[in-house]
Structures are given as structure tokens and as C-alpha cells.
Amino acid sequence: MPRSVQGGRTVEGGSVRYRSRSVGDIERASRAERVRASYHRHLAKLGIVLGAIAVLLACAAVLYFSSVFSIDEVKVEGVEHLTQSDLQALVSVPEGETLLRVDTKAIEDSLLRDAWVKSVSCNRIFPHTLQIVVTERTVAAVVEVPTSDAKSTQPWAISSDGMWLMAIPDQDTQLGQSLNQRIYDDAQNALHITDVPYGTSAETGTKCTDENVNNALAIVSGMTTDLANQVKT
């Protein structure tokens, strides 16, 4: 008797017989279909994410090279001993610079080169302000350092952490007139360390290595406020 196969059916004469598929075949086919569907969904999500990232990068590049966030104001806070000319020499913001392009690390490093500056941070305040917050060292004492000829002494301001801040010139000199008045106010009110051994050297921006001075400074730093107000030397 003639027969033929059509799809999943076997036809013999006028009767039709269906061939059965195993449960395992059906499950494998269904699992494969789910995997393909999941793969396509993940590809679609990945495409959306990559597209969004590309748009954000393009926008960031446009803002970075544009003048949208140009620096129109530089605010310096916490400065009490540096003069305006000191700050201009230490802080340089090129004309046309923006908050996105400004090198804040370079500004901080430049300020930290000054002995008065203990720490500094630069903050971008959008849309147009660069804020520079400075923490200065204070005058813990004035040390009478012998001159090289041992005939006189030179007063030096020193901080509580042993940093030589500066030699204090006579206020009536041209150099003295150019300094911040706060330096002389602090020097007048600070305790003075005298009888420093000949050969003691002081250099602005370096830590004191003289044991005698450091011992005296430790005593000064350990005084209570009441005692410090009574002792001058």
C-alpha cells in the first residue's frame, strides 16, 4: 500500500498516523527558544546602555571644551598672614579657564609651597566660582636666632609644628611695610625664645632641627592659656 510522510504524520492509504515526539525533545526546543529570546533582550538592553553612554560622553566633551562654566570669581578664604600680592604670585588662574578644566591640584601645590599654608582645598561652585579654602599656620613663638657674626639676633616666627615661617624685619623698613600687619600683631603677642645657641640656623619653609629650640617650643606649646598670658620670654 502506498504511503507518504507529511510533517509529523505518516499517511497510508486513507488513514493518518501521527508520530509522537519525546518529552525531552519538546523541553530542549522550548529551552532553546527561551535562551534565544533572553539573548535578544540582553542585546537590546546593552544597545540602549551603550547609546546612553555615548550621548553622555558627547555632552561631557562639549561642556569640557565650552565656556559654559567659565571662572568669573575666585574666592580665597582663611588667609590672614598673606598679602594680596602674595596670593597673586601663588594662585594663577588663566583667563578663560573653566571649572571643568582648571587644575586645582596645581593651585593647591603652589599654595602649599608657602610656609604659612598648612593645608588647602579647591572647591568648584557651579556655575562660575572657584573657592580656595586655606588653613594657615599660626605663630607659636618668636625665636631670637643669632646672626652669622654673633653680634645680634634676628627674630624668626615659628609655628607649633616647628616650621620656620619667616624672619621678621623691622616694621619701619620697606620690606616690613609690605608685609601683612597681622604678622607683627602675632609677633608682639607671642612668647619669645631667647638665648638660642650660636650656630642655630633658620630657613623659611623648613622644619626646625635644633634640639634647644624644639625643647623650648614644646614648653611653650604645653603652657595653659593663663600661664602663656603671663610669660613673655
Rank of each mutant, 00 (worst) to 15 (best):
Leu191Gln: 03
Leu112Gln: 08
Thr138Cys: 01
Glu80Phe: 10
Ile132Tyr: 02
Phe126Arg: 14
Ser152Gln: 05
Arg101Gly: 13
Val143Lys: 01
Ser160Ala: 11
Val91Asn: 05
Gln174Cys: 00
Pro197Leu: 07
Asp109Gly: 02
Asp114Met: 00
Val134Trp: 02
Leu179Asn: 00
Gly78Phe: 08
Glu211Val: 12
Val134Thr: 05
Ser119His: 12
Arg124Gln: 11
Cys122Gln: 04
Thr147Lys: 10
Lys151Leu: 08
Ser121Ile: 06
Arg101Glu: 15
Val102Asp: 14
Glu80Met: 04
Ile158Glu: 09
Lys105Tyr: 02
Asn180Trp: 03
Glu77Tyr: 04
Leu175Ala: 13
Phe126Pro: 06
Pro127Met: 13
Gly162Lys: 12
Val133Ile: 11
Leu99Ile: 00
Gly176His: 12
Ile168His: 07
Leu130Thr: 06
Asp86Tyr: 05
Asp161His: 08
Lys151Trp: 04
Val102Ile: 15
Val142Trp: 01
Ala187Asp: 01
Leu191Lys: 04
Ser152Asp: 14
Leu112Gly: 04
Lys207Leu: 12
Gln177Pro: 00
Asp161Val: 08
Glu80Leu: 11
Thr204Arg: 05
Ser110Met: 09
Glu108His: 02
Ser119Gln: 11
Val145Ile: 15
Pro155His: 02
Leu191Met: 09
Glu95Gln: 15
Val196Glu: 04
